[in-house]
Simulated assay, not measured.
Amino acid sequence: MNGKEVNEMNIFQYQGQEEDHYTNILMCILDYKDQLILPQFIKGLMADYANDFQFSNLSINVRTKYCPQQSKPYEYIFGIAPYKSGVTHSDLEDNSGSIPDAWICGSNFNLLFEFKIRGTLDEGQISAHKRLLNKEDAQVIRLTWDNVMESLANIKTNDFVLQYLLQNFFDLKNKFKSKRRSSGMPKEIISNINRKNELHFIITGSRAHKPYKVEMAFNGITELLRNDLIGITAARRYIAEYVYLNKDSLPITYEGDSTEINDYCVAPGRAEKKNSWNQWRLGAYFKKS
């Protein structure tokens, strides 16, 4: 990147809008040491979509309206918000002045990013971004901040500065506000009955005590499975995948996506009576590829 671009994307430079500020921090982390972890991050977000990407001539640009590179064979729009669904818009609404939050480009791909730290995506902005790519049928990949944090959490690096920056970015997620459900349990939860005499998983962690860990418990024996997860959702996704992969050896009645999973959520330092039992279906957190 040239000197001008470096000055425009400085991790210590405050941006006036919250979304711009947090986008700038994330992109600075991804740009560190000639985009050292950027390929891992993109592969974590895109999985098989990125199989044919050529991770050379990488560049990152923030708050730039037009794509900084010429058209490429692979071009995608990323919409990232607490909720995947978008806010509808009127056909008469003018979003032509909409500026993408970030561009990530490589030898044969261009990725446009639109971030929201509250609520949902604005479909008017997404439509305007398609025009920036000159592709009305451009594929839009809608993700949540959980997907972003999971991709970052799975990055392997021995660089202590990067490890420090990533851990601090994980702590920012509390500032990304999702709309709270009006009442009751999350929609994925089907009941909250104590099932300590059956196979169950213990999820331990809280906002103040990270990372989260997952243990498997049965017949009085507890086994640690993971201790590096970023939250309850990530823990349940891991549990669902673990059950699916080990279904033939676990003492459960496997019923595909309808398989019932038991977990016990523990927050260190919290009164035991406030810890919670939960039952949910495997298909709520795990989809076979």
Rank of each mutant, 00 (worst) to 15 (best):
residue 1 M to H: 10
residue 3 G to I: 08
residue 4 K to P: 01
residue 5 E to F: 01
residue 6 V to I: 12
residue 6 V to Y: 11
residue 8 E to A: 04
residue 14 Y to D: 00
residue 15 Q to R: 01
residue 15 Q to F: 00
residue 18 E to N: 07
residue 20 D to H: 06
residue 28 C to M: 01
residue 31 D to V: 01
residue 34 D to V: 04
residue 35 Q to Y: 15
residue 52 D to V: 05
residue 56 S to N: 13
residue 58 L to I: 12
residue 58 L to W: 08
residue 62 V to M: 07
residue 63 R to N: 13
residue 66 Y to H: 14
residue 68 P to D: 01
residue 69 Q to A: 15
residue 73 P to E: 15
residue 75 E to F: 08
residue 78 F to K: 03
residue 87 V to Y: 05
residue 92 L to K: 10
residue 92 L to D: 14
residue 95 N to K: 13
residue 100 P to W: 00
residue 100 P to K: 00
residue 102 A to H: 08
residue 104 I to L: 15
residue 114 E to C: 02
residue 119 G to I: 03
residue 126 I to A: 15
residue 132 L to R: 09
residue 133 L to I: 01
residue 136 E to G: 07
residue 138 A to K: 03
residue 141 I to Q: 08
residue 142 R to V: 09
residue 149 M to C: 08
residue 150 E to W: 07
residue 153 A to L: 15
residue 158 N to C: 05
residue 164 Y to L: 12
residue 166 L to V: 07
residue 174 N to Y: 11
residue 179 K to L: 07
residue 179 K to I: 10
residue 179 K to N: 14
residue 183 S to P: 12
residue 190 I to V: 14
residue 191 S to N: 14
residue 191 S to R: 05
residue 193 I to W: 03
residue 194 N to F: 05
residue 198 E to D: 12
residue 202 I to H: 06
residue 205 G to D: 12
residue 205 G to T: 03
residue 206 S to M: 09
residue 206 S to A: 06
residue 209 H to A: 07
residue 209 H to L: 10
residue 210 K to V: 08
residue 216 M to W: 02
residue 217 A to N: 15
residue 220 G to N: 05
residue 221 I to A: 12
residue 229 L to A: 03
residue 230 I to T: 15
residue 230 I to K: 05
residue 231 G to N: 13
residue 232 I to Q: 11
residue 232 I to A: 11
residue 237 R to P: 11
residue 238 Y to E: 10
residue 251 P to H: 10
residue 257 D to G: 08
residue 258 S to T: 04
residue 259 T to H: 03
residue 269 G to D: 08
residue 272 E to W: 11
residue 274 K to H: 13
residue 276 S to K: 08
residue 278 N to L: 14
residue 280 W to K: 04
residue 283 G to R: 00
residue 285 Y to H: 14
residue 285 Y to V: 04
